[in-house]
Design a binder for these strands. Structure first.
Lengths: 166, 166
DNA sequence: CGTCATTAGTTGACAGAGCAACTATTTAGC
DNA sequence: GCTAAATAGTTGCTCTGTCAACTAATGACG
């Protein structure tokens, strides 16, 4: 087989010995590029990808709001510093927090109008920037990809008790 | 179709409207979990994933060494702070740097014996921890996965001139 | 109902990322 | 050869991420 495009990208002189190693590296690298692409679209609006994720989560729970740690559990990528992440969103006027009356340990977070407005901007530009990246994949490829990623996450979760305590 | 495992993982109440959106999120999340798994193995040895990557790159170029920015170009995930990253490796005695005589702007980095020794430890434990995560995939699935990721990276590179100037 | 464990979240200290400005050296053009 | 531009890397500053210790409130159980 010819040199894989990944070894060429990373300027490796040796091919991968094992397709699983290659898949591991390819996944990390592809995700890094996607993150890069996404940040090009959203960071000009002065929020990070993690903050964008929080806003979307809160928009999905507008009626009730969400406790801080529940946000954390729903995030696509881990973010242990959730408190300060939300701090910054609050300072920016994009979210609001209030202590619950029933359980006074909890803090409910709500998205503010300003946050919703920002998201509505991004609703247009983000898919435009990201969906095209998958245009080389046929519908069947996409299904297969989702299925494979699913299988990997399952194996990962099974072996990482510390990863998430859902 | 039943609720996808991704929407369940992230506790979303709405399904993804678009399989491309879902693939985007699934990729970021899967990579995050892989990174987590990897860090469980290597961070006990007091190096980060990025530093591990640098050490492997330098091992692959032992005979000649590599200029600092060339390391940067070969990394799986972007690391703009390459200077300081290598600083720490040097402080830890894992790499050595020297200014080139022919081009005195360049700094050649070499891996030290201590770095090689550390890698030889990890050579055993890292594949053991990571390869099993792909055991749910048949060889054909792996090929298909690599191919799909490749297509995504190509599309990404085409649209991100700022991503890398290979 | 009092102690102990658990849950929810915050804070402090410190390492690391990210960006822009800067130095040193080399290359290219006139 | 001399100036201008490009290359290689470093440094300063700020902001963010990480980890551990801490407070406060709730739940469990004898």
């Amino acid at each position: 087989m010819a040199q894989s495009s990944l070894t060429r990208e990373l300027r490796q002189n040796k091919p991968f010995l094992n397709p699983r190693d290659e898949a591991f590296v390819a996944l990390l690298r592809t995700a890094d590029m996607l993150r890069w692409r996404l940040s090009e679209v959203i960071e000009p609006h002065n929020i990070t990808i993690a903050q964008f994720n929080v806003l979307r989560i809160l928009r999905g729970a507008q009626s009730t709001g969400l406790p801080t740690l529940e946000i954390s559990a729903r995030m696509v990528e881990q973010a242990p510093g959730i408190t300060r992440l939300v701090d910054r969103l609050e300072t920016a006027g994009l979210v609001r927090r209030e202590r619950t009356r029933t359980d006074r340990r909890q803090v409910l977070c709500h998205i503010e109008a300003k946050g919703l407005k920002l998201l509505s901007w991004l609703d247009a530009s983000v898919p435009q920037a990201t969906e095209v990246l998958f245009s080389g994949l046929k519908p069947g490829d996409l299904d297969k990809l989702l299925e494979s990623l699913d299988s990997i996450r399952k194996a990962c979760a099974a072996r990482c008790p510390s990863l998430r305590k859902h």
